[in-house]
Nucleic acid binder design. Structure first.
Lengths: 212, 212
DNA sequence: CATGCTTGGATAGTGACACTACCTAACAAG
DNA sequence: CTTGTTAGGTAGTGTCACTATCCAAGCATG
């Protein structure tokens, strides 16, 4: 198919597709002549994936490229590819270096992971983005004077554990390894707004129940 | 205290504080002379809150202003203030109008809310931001060919329900109504990165358990 | 009281980001 | 042959959250 049809079927404007091509998010099509390229179903599928990551998952364009290309990198083993696909992802600002709230947060999180039995074999300088984001968020909450110690966090951790189990079940349903990687990315990123929206709706619901 | 001290104690650069003042995120201080104003502990507290919402919670500056001022609006009743504080918040793009995936998503979500027993008394044109975000995310997932029907979503919904209960318990621990509003905002917004980070860490953990 | 630093207030500029518009030469289709 | 489309490139747009610079009016210090 031509650019125009790719645009039609994906709902993405042609100018934007060109932009994605420039950014390496999409492979160039098969050149048919000096002024035309042929795109296949693969392009359509990948375009839809990129679009969903960017628009729904709020993943920066550059990161989406990393994630998608890591997912296709045959030189990594399966677990690494699963990890690489999600490792590049979130990243709020890292925790501020030295204030007391940040220290407390670091200790709470370490203790939390121990209690949950998540090894997290890494020195304090090589934390995963998720780990650092967690510390920064806990520090911010503590700084505002709200409770955010291990007791508060544990239930959240246990819920996360259960989510992960059911998510990974879904990943394992995919037969191919490439399919599993993609499923992992989609689940990780696109279920986040689902989870947050449901939590907000539940807040509204529970608040109505209590205060109305 | 003066601007410099406010900056020192909050860790926010003076230029940024001035920007927040311009944007109405912070009340002006008490004018002491033509070139000096006095700020109090309230300013410091509110500045920290705004900063946390913006940096950790990724709330746009304009939205943070809405949220904070809604929280202080005495003309609303308590439930409304709780709602207003969170209603303005997220907002991915609304679901695309008419494609089959969006229709399926709309139906799934409606059915889901019914099964969860969340009333959501609203016509299809007046959905909450969370509701619309949810539909858009589900539509994106469906469009990529992944399962995202009621059976998939129900466990997520039940978890959200439990989170909401424990969150609202925390809110009710605050004695003052203003304190409750602020707690609701903080919990809603700042626990989101906590929840997402924990989920990602749990993914890594569970993935290591299965694929290593 | 002279000097130099700080402040509040205003205006303009920056850099990142995700597009979007426009242009051109080379085709393609009727 | 005319009309339209395409790839490819460059430049512009709008938003956002700051950030830098100026200025005149203090305040503080010797």
């Amino acid at each position: 198919m031509r650019l125009a049809e790719l645009s039609e079927r994906s709902g993405v404007p042609t100018a934007t597709i060109k932009y994605y091509l420039r950014e390496g998010l999409l492979q160039p099509g098969r050149r048919v002549s000096a002024t035309q390229s042929e795109y296949g179903e693969d392009h359509l599928r990948r375009l839809r994936l990129a679009r969903a990551l960017i628009q729904i998952g709020k993943v920066p364009v550059a990161t989406a490229r990393e994630v998608i290309s890591a997912a296709e990198d045959e030189s990594l083993d399966h677990h690494e590819r699963l990890g690489a696909a999600t490792l590049a992802l979130p990243l709020g600002p890292g925790p501020a270096g030295d204030d007391p709230a940040a220290d407390a947060a670091r200790r709470s999180v370490t203790e939390l992971l121990r209690r949950l039995g998540w090894p997290c074999e890494c020195g304090p300088d090589e934390l995963s983005p998720a780990h650092r984001t967690l510390i920064a968020a806990v520090a911010a909450i503590v700084r505002l004077g709200y409770p955010c110690d291990v007791e508060q966090l544990l239930p959240y951790g246990r819920l996360a554990e259960r989510l992960a189990v059911s998510d990974l079940d879904l990943v394992e349903r995919e037969e191919t390894r490439a399919g599993q990687i993609e499923a992992a990315v989609v689940l990780t990123v696109l279920y986040e707004p689902v989870l947050l929206s449901l939590r907000r709706l539940a807040h509204a619901e529970e608040s109505a129940r209590r205060f109305l």
